[in-house]
Design a protein around this nucleic acid. Structure first.
Lengths: 216, 216, 216, 216
DNA sequence: TATGAATGAGTGTTCATTCAT
DNA sequence: TATGAATGAACACTCATTCAT
């Protein structure tokens, strides 16, 4: 029974992603979501308080999953370079593999509606914190000079977000993941990332100077 | 501000910015805009085809002004460093001095609605092109290595946009303009900007004037 | 314009009486009232806050008229007997001549709904006060012994009300006005009404005693 | 009150009285009745055809009890005075001791809904007949002059009903039973009741017993 | 141009009832 | 009998747009 409940809950959420991505939150009728989910209109209200609540739970659930995945991957990274790469790669590939969710995230969730904003803020701030932790760790490890963490986070998230929106709006035929390397290069430059090869103590100082020259 | 003298068109546009910033595009009634503008509901439809059309013309008009201002300022810049500074400063100060417009721009214009998107794309692509030109010029002048212009533009616009959204949503008490310097530092790092103070010592005045002419 | 407004207001009220009498307040759709009134659904909401508000204004308006009529007639009565007759006659004939309004009054307005109750109480209490004033005047004039005014009012209104409900529900084929004389006889007995022939000073005391015997 | 031992039918009926008295018939959900009764929603439909049927059976059951009680008490009365007193006292005390039932009876049962009306009519007409029998007996016994029985019944029931509604709506802080004596005085006056204390002095005991047998 | 009363299509939500278990 | 998740018909109300003045 509980399994069926969960089944319907997820089906409604998936249907909502598709429906909202197609028509936008305001133009998408609850009955359309119900039809896509294969349930009756009224059934929606056994799982969600209101139409707005669908949007909120949708974001909290999917963004929660997303952050959990990134956190797991980050735990296995040894350097800031790897961590940045993990964030960019996971962000882009996740969005690319779930275009409807990306549309909802990039467009529909930018609501001025207060209750929606409040509900969205939680998971979003988690993501921000995660990015900021990576920067802070880089500074502590001496990989990054003392940058303004807040602004650095704005740059990283803003860039990923804009690239995703660009892709969602199909302003450009490129795949999202094709932007991973150039984006990473920009981030490393912006953060003056000192590649941590020396940590492994295999690389002589001269080599490092070459790298720095290449970067400048 | 003389309510009687300004054209009704402008008054309706200003009223729309205020009203939409307050309640969001979908929750803001045409009659509210009319009331704020001091005109009858029907009058709106003498100047605008539809409610949607208000949003579109609003963005086109204000974004057009914004781009014109930046273009003017850029014409007077001699270096990529100055040009980047101009963009960041103008973007932030414009948004900060017109919070309602910023709210509309940052939140309300992210509509998946196709006709709105199409109408918004024009001015936005102008802005993108403007940023890309600055990067391209930097590359041509040897101030910037060969970066992926597309991705660089995504980073610059995305960062400015995210910082503005952050400020609009008051996630942070800082003023927007306080982010100018750190943001610029990041951009310069990301673009591996070769500061052109030395350059000037290498290039004769005549040459520099040619560059400036090319930019104007 | 104001005339047209009033025209529609009244038309909606009349339509509501008919529609509610037919189907009951809860089963009667706003669109049915609109159709009967010859206006669009939305027009209703230019004149009334809500469906409930229609019921409230309906009662306040019609009951107000009713009380005004009775008050006028009472002002021309010289004796308690005449006043009681006026109340019974007016109550019955008004109801009989406006069956739909009677249905609404007798059945639909008995709502436990608090806001409806509150709105109804005003005019109803006016009517109660009017009845109580007649009784009080009778006591002051020595036409009625010292009865419990509150309970006397309950009896008078309750009897009129029940007779009206009986008639509305067609439990009996009699006309309402055919009940005027027997009802008056009951009221006069209940109130031990001393007929005020003596006031006219034409009738000797012996006659009065006969009357009293007949009444006992 | 042992929730487990009472039959579910009775528990549902009691729950319905409480729930309907609180929110009114139309605003009271079947699921609320089920919750109060401690049964599942579906269980209601094992005992009742529909929500409407609950109201109908509720009235028929409770009103049937009420009439049976009055009939029993009336059988023990020797005079019309006693019979009237019995009706008024029982009516008021029953209502006062079961306020929720009174609310349902006074407010919720005034439904124009035909099927409800029809179902209610049965027990109500029984009550009416009972009152009319008392009046008729009074006339036959010479205690009451020849009054219009129909109208007299309307007066008696209407007065009791209005007093009860007054009390239900708390328009007055008095208890209901405090109205017994004044109400009785009014009824006796209205019916020109000839008190039978003297009568008993005229009639031998055997005769009185016959009367009582006739009544039972 | 300007008005604002009137329109009526459109939809989120409720809740009595059913039925598989 | 008993359950309670699921159903889906039904409806009050909103608001962008029109048009007679």
């Amino acid at each position: 029974m509980s399994l069926q409940r969960e089944g319907k809950y997820e089906r409604i959420l998936d249907a909502a992603i598709t429906a909202i991505a197609e028509s936008g939150f305001y133009h998408c009728q609850v009955s359309k979501i119900a039809r896509l989910a294969g349930v009756a209109d009224g059934t929606i209200y056994l799982y969600f308080k209101s139409k707005e609540d669908i949007l909120i739970q949708l974001f909290q659930s999917r963004m929660g999953d997303f952050i959990a995945v990134i956190r797991n991957k980050l735990a296995q990274c040894g350097t800031t370079e790897e961590r940045l790469r993990t964030i960019v790669e996971t962000h882009f590939s996740n969005m690319e593999h779930n275009r409807s969710l990306a549309i909802v995230t990039q467009l529909e969730l930018r609501q001025p509606n207060l209750s929606i904003r409040r509900a969205i803020n939680g998971p979003l701030l988690d993501y921000f914190k995660l990015i900021e932790e990576v920067i802070l760790l880089g500074i502590e490890h001496g990989e990054i000079p003392n940058v303004d963490i807040w602004v650095a986070r704005q740059m990283i998230f803003g860039s990923l977000d804009e690239a995703t929106t660009d892709w969602v709006l199909a302003r450009h035929p490129r795949t999202l993941v094709s932007g991973v390397e150039p984006m990473l290069a920009l981030f490393e430059g912006a953060l003056r990332l000192r590649k941590t090869e020396e940590k492994r103590q295999l690389i002589p100082d001269e080599k490092r100077e070459e790298d720095e020259n290449a970067n400048s």
